[in-house]
Amino acid sequence: MQVDGLENTGRAQPILTARRAGLVACSVCGKVHAAGSDRCRRCHAPLHSRAPASLQRVWAWWLAGLVAYIPANIYPMLRTATFGHETKNTIVGGVIELMQHGSYFVAGVVFSASVMIPVGKFIAIAYLAISVRYVSALRVHTRQHLYEVVEFIGRWSMIDVFVVAILSALVQFKFVASVHPGVAAVSFALSVAFTMLSAQSFDSRLIWDADEEDQE
């Protein structure tokens, strides 16, 4: 370990950030530039001390994701036709059916990916976006950790969309049995994409700025 924070133990003085030092840091490659530079010299990414309008973009994508999530739960995800008789399954309906078959583990996987992760993500992103404006109950490291979890886990919600894709490709036995994707598959996929964009729009440096201000 080359990095030691000895001078910062006990938080005797505020930590020196690039912004405090009057510099601009590249959020892609970490290179430090003089204030006023607009492109990173190393990776050519646009430079911003803090991502512009970060919170507005977070809320816009968040809302779009929430709007898309509603039809995803109301309309059928999967239409199964067996001998001319069609059954429609919503997300939750599919989970219940799996449980009736006794596949509790897989039902759990689908339930966490399609219900718990998206709902938890809406709450977590909203909490993070609000907490940078107001004093937060959670420690700053906990909030950073929460953000990393949201970024990492959000994409796994796509499982159900892929399940629908595979089933529709596999189960095509004309009259005997056939599976078709429902409208909810589209709106659910959109909802996941929008919340991923929402999480990506969030500038994690805002979490640490808020912490800095609290201490002063």
Binding site: I15, L16, T17, A18, R19, A21, L23, A25, C26, S27, V28, C29, G30, K31, V32, H33, A34, Q144, S204, R205, I207, W208, D209
Partner: peptide, 15 residues
């Protein structure tokens, strides 16, 4: 500070 000798944390901006 020599800018070439610095790196900022992309996550929290610490130098």
């Amino acid at each position: 500070l020599d800018l070439e000798g610095l790196i900022a944390c992309p996550v929290c901006d610490a130098l």
